[in-house]
Design a protein around this nucleic acid. Structure first.
Length: 476
DNA sequence: CCTGGAGTTGTCCTA
DNA sequence: TTAGGACAACTCCAG
Protein backbone atom coordinates (compact mmCIF):
# COMPACT_ATOMS: atom_id res chain seq x y z
CA UNK A 1 0.00 0.00 0.00
CA UNK A 2 1.24 3.48 -0.87
CA UNK A 3 2.15 5.57 2.16
CA UNK A 4 -0.13 8.57 2.57
CA UNK A 5 0.59 12.29 2.77
CA UNK A 6 -0.75 13.82 5.94
CA UNK A 7 -2.74 17.04 5.48
CA UNK A 8 -3.08 18.67 8.85
CA UNK A 9 -6.17 20.90 8.89
CA UNK A 10 -6.12 23.74 11.40
CA UNK A 11 -7.77 27.08 10.58
CA UNK A 12 -8.52 26.11 7.01
CA UNK A 13 -11.54 23.84 7.32
CA UNK A 14 -12.37 23.73 3.63
CA UNK A 15 -11.53 21.84 0.46
CA UNK A 16 -11.63 24.72 -2.01
CA UNK A 17 -8.78 27.21 -2.29
CA UNK A 18 -6.76 25.19 0.17
CA UNK A 19 -3.10 25.33 -0.93
CA UNK A 20 -1.88 22.54 1.36
CA UNK A 21 -4.57 20.16 0.22
CA UNK A 22 -4.05 21.00 -3.43
CA UNK A 23 -0.30 20.49 -3.13
CA UNK A 24 -0.76 17.20 -1.31
CA UNK A 25 -3.14 16.00 -3.98
CA UNK A 26 -0.55 16.75 -6.64
CA UNK A 27 1.83 14.22 -5.13
CA UNK A 28 -0.51 11.54 -6.45
CA UNK A 29 -0.38 9.67 -3.14
CA UNK A 30 -3.37 9.06 -0.87
CA UNK A 31 -4.21 11.79 1.58
CA UNK A 32 -4.70 11.34 5.28
CA UNK A 33 -6.71 14.36 6.49
CA UNK A 34 -6.03 15.15 10.12
CA UNK A 35 -7.45 17.50 12.72
CA UNK A 36 -5.92 17.87 16.18
CA UNK A 37 -7.57 19.63 19.09
CA UNK A 38 -4.65 21.26 20.84
CA UNK A 39 -5.45 22.55 24.30
CA UNK A 40 -1.89 21.97 25.40
CA UNK A 41 0.10 24.61 23.55
CA UNK A 42 -2.53 27.33 23.45
CA UNK A 43 -1.71 28.56 26.95
CA UNK A 44 -3.96 31.36 28.10
CA UNK A 45 -5.61 31.48 24.65
CA UNK A 46 -7.33 28.15 24.93
CA UNK A 47 -10.34 28.19 22.64
CA UNK A 48 -13.52 29.61 24.21
CA UNK A 49 -16.85 27.85 24.65
CA UNK A 50 -18.69 29.48 21.76
CA UNK A 51 -15.84 28.78 19.35
CA UNK A 52 -15.83 25.14 20.38
CA UNK A 53 -19.44 24.73 19.40
CA UNK A 54 -18.69 26.24 16.01
CA UNK A 55 -15.62 24.06 15.60
CA UNK A 56 -17.63 20.93 16.35
CA UNK A 57 -20.15 21.75 13.64
CA UNK A 58 -17.48 22.80 11.20
CA UNK A 59 -15.51 19.59 11.68
CA UNK A 60 -18.67 17.57 11.21
CA UNK A 61 -19.20 19.30 7.90
CA UNK A 62 -15.58 18.88 6.81
CA UNK A 63 -15.66 15.21 7.75
CA UNK A 64 -18.76 14.76 5.62
CA UNK A 65 -17.02 16.43 2.66
CA UNK A 66 -14.14 14.01 3.21
CA UNK A 67 -16.57 11.09 3.23
CA UNK A 68 -15.94 10.28 6.86
CA UNK A 69 -12.17 10.08 6.48
CA UNK A 70 -11.17 12.99 8.70
CA UNK A 71 -8.88 11.67 11.41
CA UNK A 72 -9.43 13.30 14.83
CA UNK A 73 -6.79 13.65 17.49
CA UNK A 74 -6.65 15.39 20.83
CA UNK A 75 -3.46 16.31 22.60
CA UNK A 76 0.04 17.34 21.67
CA UNK A 77 0.27 17.58 17.86
CA UNK A 78 3.88 16.45 17.62
CA UNK A 79 3.17 13.22 19.54
CA UNK A 80 0.08 12.52 17.49
CA UNK A 81 1.81 13.18 14.19
CA UNK A 82 4.83 11.09 15.15
CA UNK A 83 2.59 8.18 16.04
CA UNK A 84 0.70 8.53 12.77
CA UNK A 85 3.90 8.63 10.73
CA UNK A 86 5.07 5.46 12.40
CA UNK A 87 1.81 3.61 11.97
CA UNK A 88 1.09 4.62 8.37
CA UNK A 89 4.57 4.97 6.93
CA UNK A 90 3.80 8.52 5.82
CA UNK A 91 6.83 10.65 4.96
CA UNK A 92 5.24 14.06 4.45
CA UNK A 93 3.08 16.47 6.40
CA UNK A 94 1.41 19.42 4.69
CA UNK A 95 -0.37 22.33 6.37
CA UNK A 96 -1.38 25.94 5.93
CA UNK A 97 0.36 28.45 8.14
CA UNK A 98 -1.21 30.10 11.22
CA UNK A 99 0.06 33.34 12.67
CA UNK A 100 -0.76 33.48 16.38
CA UNK A 101 2.40 33.53 18.49
CA UNK A 102 1.75 30.20 20.22
CA UNK A 103 0.94 28.45 16.96
CA UNK A 104 4.05 29.82 15.27
CA UNK A 105 6.20 28.61 18.16
CA UNK A 106 4.55 25.20 18.13
CA UNK A 107 4.66 24.74 14.37
CA UNK A 108 8.28 25.74 13.96
CA UNK A 109 9.25 23.31 16.72
CA UNK A 110 7.29 20.57 14.99
CA UNK A 111 8.84 21.34 11.64
CA UNK A 112 12.32 21.23 13.12
CA UNK A 113 11.67 17.99 14.96
CA UNK A 114 10.21 16.29 11.89
CA UNK A 115 13.14 17.41 9.81
CA UNK A 116 15.63 15.76 12.13
CA UNK A 117 13.78 12.49 11.65
CA UNK A 118 13.87 12.94 7.89
CA UNK A 119 10.23 13.88 7.48
CA UNK A 120 9.31 16.64 5.08
CA UNK A 121 6.91 19.24 6.47
CA UNK A 122 5.63 21.75 3.95
CA UNK A 123 3.62 24.80 4.87
CA UNK A 124 1.58 27.15 2.69
CA UNK A 125 -0.33 30.38 2.91
CA UNK A 126 -3.99 29.51 3.13
CA UNK A 127 -5.41 32.17 5.41
CA UNK A 128 -4.17 35.67 4.64
CA UNK A 129 -4.05 37.89 1.57
CA UNK A 130 -0.65 39.32 2.49
CA UNK A 131 1.65 37.37 4.75
CA UNK A 132 2.88 39.38 7.73
CA UNK A 133 6.49 38.27 7.53
CA UNK A 134 6.90 39.94 4.16
CA UNK A 135 4.74 43.00 4.87
CA UNK A 136 6.99 45.74 6.15
CA UNK A 137 7.62 49.40 5.45
CA UNK A 138 10.48 50.40 3.19
CA UNK A 139 12.68 50.79 6.28
CA UNK A 140 11.86 47.16 7.20
CA UNK A 141 9.91 48.03 10.33
CA UNK A 142 6.26 46.98 10.71
CA UNK A 143 3.31 49.29 10.06
CA UNK A 144 1.56 50.89 13.02
CA UNK A 145 -1.20 52.78 11.21
CA UNK A 146 -3.94 51.19 9.18
CA UNK A 147 -4.34 53.61 6.29
CA UNK A 148 -0.73 53.61 5.06
CA UNK A 149 -0.59 49.86 5.70
CA UNK A 150 -3.61 49.21 3.57
CA UNK A 151 -2.72 51.68 0.86
CA UNK A 152 0.88 50.66 0.44
CA UNK A 153 1.09 47.10 1.62
CA UNK A 154 -2.23 45.82 0.26
CA UNK A 155 -3.37 47.96 -2.65
CA UNK A 156 0.01 48.98 -4.10
CA UNK A 157 3.47 47.46 -4.02
CA UNK A 158 2.03 44.15 -2.83
CA UNK A 159 2.03 40.85 -4.68
CA UNK A 160 -1.46 40.24 -6.03
CA UNK A 161 -3.26 37.73 -3.79
CA UNK A 162 -3.74 34.37 -5.49
CA UNK A 163 -6.98 33.82 -7.30
CA UNK A 164 -9.12 31.22 -5.54
CA UNK A 165 -8.59 27.65 -6.62
CA UNK A 166 -11.28 25.02 -6.95
CA UNK A 167 -11.44 22.01 -4.65
CA UNK A 168 -9.42 19.07 -6.00
CA UNK A 169 -11.58 16.47 -7.65
CA UNK A 170 -11.57 12.75 -6.88
CA UNK A 171 -9.42 12.89 -3.76
CA UNK A 172 -7.77 9.62 -2.91
CA UNK A 173 -8.31 9.46 0.83
CA UNK A 174 -6.54 7.33 3.38
CA UNK A 175 -8.61 6.20 6.34
CA UNK A 176 -7.10 6.04 9.79
CA UNK A 177 -8.95 6.43 13.04
CA UNK A 178 -7.65 7.69 16.36
CA UNK A 179 -10.70 9.23 17.98
CA UNK A 180 -14.21 10.26 17.05
CA UNK A 181 -15.38 13.84 16.76
CA UNK A 182 -17.53 13.43 19.85
CA UNK A 183 -14.52 12.37 21.85
CA UNK A 184 -13.05 15.83 21.34
CA UNK A 185 -15.86 17.00 23.66
CA UNK A 186 -16.35 20.32 21.95
CA UNK A 187 -20.07 20.59 22.53
CA UNK A 188 -21.24 22.65 25.50
CA UNK A 189 -22.66 20.71 28.43
CA UNK A 190 -25.55 23.14 28.83
CA UNK A 191 -27.84 23.77 25.91
CA UNK A 192 -27.20 27.48 25.51
CA UNK A 193 -26.17 26.90 21.92
CA UNK A 194 -29.72 26.30 20.65
CA UNK A 195 -30.11 29.81 19.26
CA UNK A 196 -26.75 29.51 17.58
CA UNK A 197 -27.90 26.34 15.90
CA UNK A 198 -30.77 28.19 14.26
CA UNK A 199 -28.75 31.31 13.43
CA UNK A 200 -25.68 29.84 11.78
CA UNK A 201 -24.57 27.19 9.32
CA UNK A 202 -20.95 26.36 10.09
CA UNK A 203 -18.95 24.57 7.43
CA UNK A 204 -17.65 25.24 3.95
CA UNK A 205 -20.97 24.94 2.16
CA UNK A 206 -22.70 27.28 4.60
CA UNK A 207 -19.83 29.74 4.31
CA UNK A 208 -19.90 29.84 0.52
CA UNK A 209 -23.67 30.26 0.42
CA UNK A 210 -23.40 32.95 3.05
CA UNK A 211 -20.84 34.90 1.04
CA UNK A 212 -22.88 34.59 -2.14
CA UNK A 213 -25.98 35.84 -0.38
CA UNK A 214 -24.18 38.78 1.18
CA UNK A 215 -22.62 39.83 -2.11
CA UNK A 216 -26.00 39.54 -3.77
CA UNK A 217 -28.13 41.37 -1.23
CA UNK A 218 -25.93 43.13 1.32
CA UNK A 219 -22.99 44.62 -0.55
CA UNK A 220 -24.98 47.38 -2.15
CA UNK A 221 -25.20 50.18 0.44
CA UNK A 222 -22.62 48.37 2.59
CA UNK A 223 -20.66 51.51 3.35
CA UNK A 224 -23.57 53.22 5.04
CA UNK A 225 -25.79 50.30 5.97
CA UNK A 226 -23.05 48.49 7.86
CA UNK A 227 -23.54 50.96 10.70
CA UNK A 228 -27.12 49.91 11.38
CA UNK A 229 -27.42 46.76 13.47
CA UNK A 230 -30.97 46.07 12.30
CA UNK A 231 -29.99 46.11 8.62
CA UNK A 232 -28.55 43.24 6.65
CA UNK A 233 -25.52 45.06 5.36
CA UNK A 234 -22.76 43.44 7.38
CA UNK A 235 -21.32 40.23 6.01
CA UNK A 236 -21.31 38.15 9.21
CA UNK A 237 -18.49 36.20 7.63
CA UNK A 238 -16.14 36.51 10.60
CA UNK A 239 -16.61 33.03 12.13
CA UNK A 240 -16.41 31.42 8.69
CA UNK A 241 -13.21 33.33 7.99
CA UNK A 242 -11.74 32.56 11.39
CA UNK A 243 -12.08 28.83 10.91
CA UNK A 244 -11.09 29.06 7.29
CA UNK A 245 -14.30 27.64 5.88
CA UNK A 246 -13.83 30.34 3.33
CA UNK A 247 -10.58 31.99 2.35
CA UNK A 248 -10.14 35.77 2.39
CA UNK A 249 -9.19 35.38 -1.26
CA UNK A 250 -12.63 34.06 -2.08
CA UNK A 251 -14.21 37.01 -0.27
CA UNK A 252 -11.77 39.53 -1.78
CA UNK A 253 -12.26 38.51 -5.39
CA UNK A 254 -15.92 37.77 -4.87
CA UNK A 255 -16.47 41.35 -3.68
CA UNK A 256 -14.43 42.68 -6.58
CA UNK A 257 -16.67 40.92 -9.07
CA UNK A 258 -19.91 41.73 -7.29
CA UNK A 259 -19.19 45.44 -6.95
CA UNK A 260 -18.73 45.69 -10.69
CA UNK A 261 -21.79 43.61 -11.45
CA UNK A 262 -23.96 45.56 -8.98
CA UNK A 263 -22.44 48.92 -9.79
CA UNK A 264 -21.44 49.66 -6.21
CA UNK A 265 -17.70 50.16 -6.33
CA UNK A 266 -17.33 52.26 -3.23
CA UNK A 267 -19.34 49.75 -1.18
CA UNK A 268 -17.20 46.94 -2.55
CA UNK A 269 -14.00 48.82 -1.88
CA UNK A 270 -15.13 49.48 1.66
CA UNK A 271 -15.84 45.81 2.27
CA UNK A 272 -12.42 44.94 0.90
CA UNK A 273 -10.84 47.42 3.29
CA UNK A 274 -12.54 45.59 6.15
CA UNK A 275 -10.76 42.45 4.98
CA UNK A 276 -7.74 44.75 5.06
CA UNK A 277 -8.37 45.30 8.78
CA UNK A 278 -8.21 41.58 9.31
CA UNK A 279 -4.84 41.57 7.55
CA UNK A 280 -3.67 44.55 9.58
CA UNK A 281 -4.58 42.87 12.88
CA UNK A 282 -2.71 39.76 11.86
CA UNK A 283 0.22 41.88 10.89
CA UNK A 284 0.27 43.72 14.21
CA UNK A 285 0.03 40.50 16.20
CA UNK A 286 2.78 38.86 14.18
CA UNK A 287 5.22 41.70 14.68
CA UNK A 288 4.14 42.63 18.21
CA UNK A 289 2.94 39.45 19.94
CA UNK A 290 2.64 41.28 23.26
CA UNK A 291 -0.52 43.10 22.07
CA UNK A 292 -2.62 40.24 23.41
CA UNK A 293 -2.03 41.54 26.92
CA UNK A 294 0.20 44.60 26.96
CA UNK A 295 -0.76 48.12 25.93
CA UNK A 296 0.69 48.91 22.54
CA UNK A 297 1.20 52.44 23.87
CA UNK A 298 3.10 51.93 27.08
CA UNK A 299 2.03 55.23 28.62
CA UNK A 300 -1.27 53.45 29.28
CA UNK A 301 0.49 51.24 31.80
CA UNK A 302 -0.13 54.00 34.31
CA UNK A 303 -3.84 54.24 33.56
CA UNK A 304 -6.00 53.95 36.67
CA UNK A 305 -8.55 51.27 35.89
CA UNK A 306 -11.33 50.61 38.34
CA UNK A 307 -12.21 47.37 40.02
CA UNK A 308 -15.95 46.80 39.99
CA UNK A 309 -17.20 43.20 39.74
CA UNK A 310 -20.88 44.19 39.91
CA UNK A 311 -20.55 46.59 37.01
CA UNK A 312 -18.65 43.99 35.01
CA UNK A 313 -21.37 41.45 35.68
CA UNK A 314 -24.07 43.92 34.62
CA UNK A 315 -22.18 44.58 31.41
CA UNK A 316 -21.66 40.89 30.66
CA UNK A 317 -25.28 39.99 31.24
CA UNK A 318 -26.81 42.98 29.48
CA UNK A 319 -28.24 44.65 32.60
CA UNK A 320 -26.64 48.09 32.47
CA UNK A 321 -29.84 50.05 31.96
CA UNK A 322 -28.62 51.36 28.60
CA UNK A 323 -30.74 49.59 25.97
CA UNK A 324 -28.25 49.57 23.09
CA UNK A 325 -25.54 48.17 25.37
CA UNK A 326 -27.85 45.53 26.81
CA UNK A 327 -29.14 44.59 23.37
CA UNK A 328 -25.58 44.08 22.15
CA UNK A 329 -24.46 42.03 25.12
CA UNK A 330 -27.55 39.85 24.87
CA UNK A 331 -27.13 39.40 21.15
CA UNK A 332 -23.63 38.18 21.95
CA UNK A 333 -24.79 35.78 24.61
CA UNK A 334 -27.64 34.32 22.60
CA UNK A 335 -26.16 34.19 19.13
CA UNK A 336 -22.39 34.21 19.68
CA UNK A 337 -22.14 37.34 17.59
CA UNK A 338 -22.44 41.09 17.90
CA UNK A 339 -22.85 43.67 15.19
CA UNK A 340 -19.70 45.70 14.58
CA UNK A 341 -21.14 49.10 15.41
CA UNK A 342 -22.52 47.73 18.67
CA UNK A 343 -19.18 46.14 19.54
CA UNK A 344 -17.68 49.62 19.51
CA UNK A 345 -20.46 51.04 21.65
CA UNK A 346 -20.28 48.32 24.32
CA UNK A 347 -16.49 48.43 24.23
CA UNK A 348 -16.37 52.16 24.76
CA UNK A 349 -18.88 51.84 27.59
CA UNK A 350 -16.88 49.17 29.42
CA UNK A 351 -13.56 50.89 29.09
CA UNK A 352 -14.52 54.54 29.35
CA UNK A 353 -17.79 54.85 31.23
CA UNK A 354 -17.09 52.00 33.62
CA UNK A 355 -13.31 52.44 33.55
CA UNK A 356 -12.84 48.67 33.56
CA UNK A 357 -9.66 47.28 32.02
CA UNK A 358 -9.93 46.24 28.39
CA UNK A 359 -8.69 42.78 29.41
CA UNK A 360 -12.16 42.15 30.89
CA UNK A 361 -13.76 42.83 27.55
CA UNK A 362 -11.12 40.87 25.71
CA UNK A 363 -11.66 37.83 27.94
CA UNK A 364 -15.43 37.95 27.75
CA UNK A 365 -15.44 38.26 23.97
CA UNK A 366 -12.89 35.49 23.75
CA UNK A 367 -15.22 33.08 25.50
CA UNK A 368 -18.54 34.14 24.00
CA UNK A 369 -17.80 35.09 20.40
CA UNK A 370 -18.08 32.48 17.70
CA UNK A 371 -15.58 34.49 15.68
CA UNK A 372 -13.12 34.93 18.58
CA UNK A 373 -9.85 35.60 16.85
CA UNK A 374 -6.70 36.47 18.75
CA UNK A 375 -5.45 39.10 16.31
CA UNK A 376 -8.78 40.84 15.76
CA UNK A 377 -9.85 40.65 19.38
CA UNK A 378 -6.64 42.08 20.83
CA UNK A 379 -6.24 44.77 18.20
CA UNK A 380 -9.84 45.91 18.46
CA UNK A 381 -9.93 46.09 22.25
CA UNK A 382 -6.74 48.12 22.24
CA UNK A 383 -8.24 50.36 19.64
CA UNK A 384 -11.40 51.10 21.60
CA UNK A 385 -9.41 51.56 24.81
CA UNK A 386 -7.25 54.09 23.01
CA UNK A 387 -3.99 52.33 23.79
CA UNK A 388 -3.67 50.63 20.41
CA UNK A 389 -2.81 51.44 16.83
CA UNK A 390 -4.76 54.59 16.18
CA UNK A 391 -4.58 58.30 16.74
CA UNK A 392 -7.45 57.51 19.13
CA UNK A 393 -8.32 60.93 20.43
CA UNK A 394 -9.01 60.35 24.10
CA UNK A 395 -12.19 62.41 23.88
CA UNK A 396 -13.76 59.87 21.56
CA UNK A 397 -16.22 58.44 24.04
CA UNK A 398 -19.34 56.92 22.56
CA UNK A 399 -22.63 58.04 24.02
CA UNK A 400 -24.88 54.95 24.08
CA UNK A 401 -28.05 57.04 23.85
CA UNK A 402 -26.90 59.13 20.91
CA UNK A 403 -25.47 56.09 19.16
CA UNK A 404 -28.69 54.18 19.71
CA UNK A 405 -30.82 56.99 18.34
CA UNK A 406 -28.55 57.45 15.39
CA UNK A 407 -28.00 53.84 14.37
CA UNK A 408 -31.13 52.13 15.66
CA UNK A 409 -33.61 54.95 15.09
CA UNK A 410 -36.67 52.71 14.86
CA UNK A 411 -35.53 50.58 17.75
CA UNK A 412 -35.79 47.33 15.80
CA UNK A 413 -32.51 46.06 17.21
CA UNK A 414 -33.20 47.05 20.81
CA UNK A 415 -36.75 45.68 20.78
CA UNK A 416 -35.48 42.35 19.49
CA UNK A 417 -33.02 41.78 22.31
CA UNK A 418 -34.54 43.86 25.12
CA UNK A 419 -38.21 42.91 24.77
CA UNK A 420 -39.15 44.07 28.27
CA UNK A 421 -39.06 47.70 27.11
CA UNK A 422 -40.46 47.09 23.62
CA UNK A 423 -43.69 48.90 24.39
CA UNK A 424 -41.91 52.21 24.91
CA UNK A 425 -42.24 54.70 22.06
CA UNK A 426 -39.14 55.27 19.93
CA UNK A 427 -38.49 58.57 21.64
CA UNK A 428 -37.69 56.95 24.98
CA UNK A 429 -36.50 53.55 23.83
CA UNK A 430 -32.84 54.45 24.18
CA UNK A 431 -33.31 56.37 27.42
CA UNK A 432 -36.19 54.78 29.37
CA UNK A 433 -35.36 56.69 32.55
CA UNK A 434 -36.40 59.88 30.79
CA UNK A 435 -39.92 58.63 30.20
CA UNK A 436 -42.67 60.07 32.40
CA UNK A 437 -44.10 57.85 35.09
CA UNK A 438 -47.50 57.45 33.43
CA UNK A 439 -45.88 56.45 30.15
CA UNK A 440 -43.78 53.84 31.95
CA UNK A 441 -46.91 52.62 33.73
CA UNK A 442 -48.81 52.46 30.46
CA UNK A 443 -45.93 50.43 28.96
CA UNK A 444 -45.98 48.09 31.96
CA UNK A 445 -42.45 48.95 32.99
CA UNK A 446 -41.18 49.56 36.48
CA UNK A 447 -37.60 50.74 36.20
CA UNK A 448 -35.35 49.00 38.66
CA UNK A 449 -37.63 45.96 38.52
CA UNK A 450 -38.52 45.02 34.94
CA UNK A 451 -35.52 46.79 33.53
CA UNK A 452 -32.54 48.29 35.38
CA UNK A 453 -31.93 51.93 35.99
CA UNK A 454 -28.64 53.08 34.43
CA UNK A 455 -25.70 51.73 36.42
CA UNK A 456 -23.63 54.85 35.76
CA UNK A 457 -24.40 58.42 34.89
CA UNK A 458 -23.19 59.20 31.39
CA UNK A 459 -22.13 62.75 31.95
CA UNK A 460 -20.12 62.26 35.12
CA UNK A 461 -18.56 58.98 33.97
CA UNK A 462 -17.48 60.72 30.80
CA UNK A 463 -15.85 63.47 32.82
CA UNK A 464 -14.18 60.89 35.03
CA UNK A 465 -12.75 59.14 31.95
CA UNK A 466 -11.46 62.39 30.50
CA UNK A 467 -9.70 63.09 33.77
CA UNK A 468 -8.16 59.64 33.87
CA UNK A 469 -6.87 60.16 30.34
CA UNK A 470 -5.53 63.60 31.22
CA UNK A 471 -3.61 62.03 34.06
CA UNK A 472 -1.60 59.61 31.94
CA UNK A 473 -0.92 62.40 29.51
CA UNK A 474 0.56 64.47 32.34
CA UNK A 475 2.37 61.46 33.81
CA UNK A 476 4.19 60.89 30.58
C1' DC B 1 17.85 63.90 8.62
C1' DC B 2 14.22 66.98 8.06
C1' DT B 3 9.47 68.26 6.91
C1' DG B 4 4.77 68.31 6.37
C1' DG B 5 0.56 65.90 6.12
C1' DA B 6 -2.49 62.74 8.12
C1' DG B 7 -4.64 59.61 11.37
C1' DT B 8 -11.92 54.02 10.77
C1' DT B 9 -15.93 54.62 13.39
C1' DG B 10 -17.37 60.98 18.40
C1' DT B 11 -19.55 64.47 21.36
C1' DC B 12 -20.85 68.78 22.85
C1' DC B 13 -21.57 73.55 22.63
C1' DT B 14 -22.64 77.54 20.24
C1' DA B 15 -24.40 80.46 16.94
C1' DT C 1 -33.05 72.57 13.69
C1' DT C 2 -28.52 72.33 11.93
C1' DA C 3 -23.75 73.13 10.90
C1' DG C 4 -19.17 74.16 12.39
C1' DG C 5 -15.58 74.32 15.53
C1' DA C 6 -13.27 72.79 19.78
C1' DC C 7 -11.51 69.07 22.08
C1' DA C 8 -4.38 68.01 22.24
C1' DA C 9 -0.90 66.84 21.02
C1' DC C 10 1.76 63.06 19.14
C1' DT C 11 3.37 59.59 16.30
C1' DC C 12 3.56 57.54 12.06
C1' DC C 13 4.82 57.65 7.43
C1' DA C 14 6.43 59.09 2.84
C1' DG C 15 9.08 62.04 0.18
Amino acid sequence: MTAPVIVWFRQDLRLSDNPALIAANKTGRPILPLYILDDINSGEWKMGSASRWWLHESLKSLNASLKGNLCFGKGNPLDIINALLKQTGAQDVFWNRCYEPWRIARDSAIKKSLKTSGIEAQSFNGSVLFEPQITLKSDFTPYRVFTPYYKNACLQNAPEPRHPQAAPQGLNLFHYEIQTLDQLELMPKLSWHKTMQTTWTPGEEGAQEHLAKFLDTGLKNYKDGRNYPAKNNVSRLSPHLHFGEISPHQAWYGAQQAMIANNCESDGAHFMSELGWREFSNNLLYHTPSITRENLQSKFDAFEWQDNPEALKAWQTGQTGYPIIDAGMRELWHTGYMHNRVRMIVGSFLVKNLLLHWHHGEDWFWDTLLDADLANNSTSWQWIAGCGADAAPYFRIFNPVTQGQKFDPNGDYVRKYVPEIAALPDKYLHSPWEAKDDLLAKSNITLGKDYPLPIVDLKSSRERALQAFAKIKAAQ
